[in-house]
Amino acid sequence: MEMKKKISRKDFLKLAGTAAASTVAAGLVEPDKIAAKADEEQQPAQADLSKLPREIVYKNELLRMQEDLLKALKKSRGMRRWAMVLDLRRCIGCSACTIGCKAENILPPGVVYRPVMDEEFGTYPKVTRRFTPRPCMQCDNPPCTSVCPVTATYKREDGIVVVDYNKCIGCRYCITACPYNARTADFGDTYTEGTPQVQDYELRPAFEYNKKWPRKRGLSPIGNARKCHFCIHRIEVGLLPACVTTCIGGATYFGDNFDTDSLVSELISRPNITTLKPELGTKPKVYYILG
């Protein structure tokens, strides 16, 4: 009761709105507004969590990441370094993140940004499984960008490796160069092709890179290389990436690794943190907690 009094009605609504971001994220922002401002810095959502009691924010990882995110957005793009941490002890292999990502980015057959690998260890009755979600590693030293013949893919100042859809010629060289198979190609397919009607929900525009990408023959991203981009279009308006908010086990963390107080920075500084194929020197910004 004490707590409730401290939170004003207005703040509570904002809090509710932020929490809703985890489930009905798309409702918070108007897609048209995003499309209007192509690849510009977006106006962060106006939610202000600072008036909330610290204990609440620190107890709820989603709220804390939300706060970290809003804090990072106040800095200029080059001062942020987005990172993701995947706690494999918490991953239950439900693939909700894979599907959440598919739905968020309206991905066609053959394009997947974040599959979850499933490994089995031991023999019956002593058997365990490990699930490893594999988004783009957003390497700090990416092998995929230098091979692009037209500089259509590059690392942004905030560390996210992006594809300029309208520049990409579709040679697929970058796909061969990724040591994590994290890039896929869009062959222009739809799931409902061959049924009486190709459904409208597959032809909706995707909002990747803060632009509208209607799904039409001959238009990008059809014919392009595609990859996970940490949901730039969401994070720049103050929403956590779709895979973070759909993770039911709370295994996916996201935040600014340049902010030493952020939750991800805290996790990354522990000794049980690792990356995939660290020996390659690609310096992924996606980290894993094995145990």
Binding site: P149, V150, C168, I169, G170, C171, Y173, G223
Partner: peptide
């Protein structure tokens, strides 16, 4: 025929990335 956007092939000549072996080859 192999590339995804045949209409953009000219970009390799007009905006090449010489860090890429493919641009060199072309």
């Amino acid at each position: 025929f192999d590339i995804g956007h045949m209409e953009r092939a000219w970009k390799i000549w007009l905006s090449p990335n010489f860090n890429s072996m493919m641009a060199w080859m072309v």
